[in-house]
Amino acid sequence: MNEARAVAPAPVDAGATAGLLEVAGLVVDLPGSRGAIRVVDGVSFDIPPATTVGLIGESGSGKTMTANAIIGLLPEGATTGGALRWRGEDLLRVDRRRRRRVRGREIAMIFQDPLAALNPTQTIARQVGEILRRDGLARDQVRRRVVDLLDRAGIPEPPRRLNNYPHEFSGGMRQRAMIALALAGNPALLLADEPTTALDVTVQARILRLLGTIQESDGLAMLLVSHDLRVVAHVAHQVVVMYAGRVAERGPTATVLRRPAHPYTRALVDSVPAIRTRTALAHPLPGTPATPVNRPAGCAFHPRCPLARDRCRTEQPAVRSVAPDHWTACHFAEEMADRV
């Protein structure tokens, strides 16, 4: 099973897609005590330029591993298959130097816990300015640019905050500093892994608004990884739903949420507790999310699925198109009744 590179199932969507990044049949295997564990199993989707793609899933869905594979932060011993086509070159096959050049400059990432991601022993200015200094900018130029970046990230009175350390910032301000740091390399793609999960709701709303503004004004592409459908629905143009390391469904956000073509997506939508209505309790999905360690045969979702029948237990559904730009990995998507 360690020959992940050789097995690469790459049913790449035919036709020239204008993706900035094309994730094509991505496979990630992690070493386990009983052989390799396939945590990402043939995942394909595109991130078009200036578009926010939401990557949604529960624990064990492989969403974070997919993002880590893109930025090149997989754990030691991980093997990969498929392709990550970035502006025409495959990031899984470029050499180390090119990889490092891409990371932080062309593709940047922000994390759930900015306190863990920032260096506690260095000032905010030093960390945000690191990439600029490395590019050979003069001291006063770096300073000017850092002030500008902090300002864009919504940090009030940036000149006074330059010599602060991360612990002197609140949670929301740290995430803003993290965003400034990510923007310093002038990236074309920003990966955001649960960027607001650790924050209070009022702060979350502000950070999401900030990300939306930056995405639009810079024409940035963004991959927003989240377990919270509400966050994804709020900012993403397109959504990719993952389950047990595979894509369950993907398409334009509004379509996927209103007319899901996969029973798992439908269940996720129904599980979101609403503030105005009591709906989340109607028909909770039985069981717990499948994990890559004990992924059921056939369709991984079949033990929890209301539509499941014999075919689902044996035959893994291919990802197929049900409408332009709308893809599902369900044998029986057509049978999904319209909401009554």
Partner: peptide, 13 residues
Amino acid sequence: DVSVQAQILRLLV
């Protein structure tokens, strides 16, 4: 997880 959260909420109700 949200799908499990819905189950536990339902149980408590």
